[in-house]
Amino acid sequence: MDAFIEACFKAAIEVEAFIRSTEHHYGCEPQTEGAGGDLSINYDLLAEEIFVKHLSSFGKILSEESGSIGEGKDLIIIDPVDGSDNLMSEFPYYGTSIALKRDNRTVAGIVCNFANGDCFVRTENEHYRRSLFREDEREDVHANIHAKVGLFEKPGLHPDAARTLMDTGFKFRSPGAVALSLAYAHSALYMVFVGPMRLYDVEAGLYLCEDLYTYRSKDILIVSHNKDVFAKILTIFNLSEASE
Rank of each mutant, 00 (worst) to 15 (best):
E23W: 13
A47S: 10
N144H: 10
P155L: 09
A242W: 14
K101R: 07
S217D: 08
F237V: 06
A35M: 07
L100D: 08
K73T: 05
D140P: 12
F193I: 00
T106S: 13
A7W: 02
S21A: 06
D167L: 01
V149G: 05
I145T: 07
L212C: 09
G109D: 03
Y94M: 07
G70D: 10
F133V: 05
Y94C: 05
H54G: 06
E210I: 05
G27Q: 10
K148Y: 07
I145H: 14
G117L: 09
F170G: 01
V81G: 07
S66N: 11
R216M: 04
P30T: 13
R130K: 04
L189G: 13
P196S: 05
L165E: 03
I69K: 07
A11G: 06
A7K: 09
M197A: 03
D167I: 00
D103T: 02
A188W: 12
G169E: 04
G27F: 11
R122A: 12
S84M: 08
H142R: 11
E48A: 09
E244W: 00
D2R: 10
G37A: 10
V223K: 14
R173H: 14
E49A: 06
P80T: 13
G169C: 02
T22Y: 05
F18L: 14
V15S: 02
Y43L: 12
E6S: 11
N116Q: 08
C8W: 04
L100P: 07
V192F: 01
Y213S: 04
E244K: 01
R129L: 02
D140M: 05
C8P: 05
E244Q: 00
S84I: 08
T235L: 00
R216F: 03
E90I: 15
L45C: 09
F193G: 00
D79S: 01
A147M: 14
L55T: 08
E210K: 15
D103C: 02
E16W: 10
R129S: 07
M197R: 09
G205A: 03
I19S: 01
V192M: 01
I220A: 09
I145V: 10
L182W: 05
I61R: 11
E139W: 03
D44E: 06
A147S: 15
L239N: 01
F114L: 11
V107P: 02
R138H: 15
E203D: 13
N42H: 15
E71A: 02
D167G: 01
N144S: 04
Y215P: 13
N86P: 14
E153D: 10
P175K: 15
K101T: 08
L151Y: 15
R138Q: 14
A35K: 06
A183C: 04
K148T: 12
R198L: 09
V229T: 15
A3P: 04
E65S: 03
H186W: 12
M166K: 01
G59N: 09
N86S: 08
M191V: 03
V229C: 14
S187A: 04
R216T: 13
R216I: 10
S181P: 00
G59K: 12
D201Y: 05
A162K: 05
I77D: 13
L234W: 10
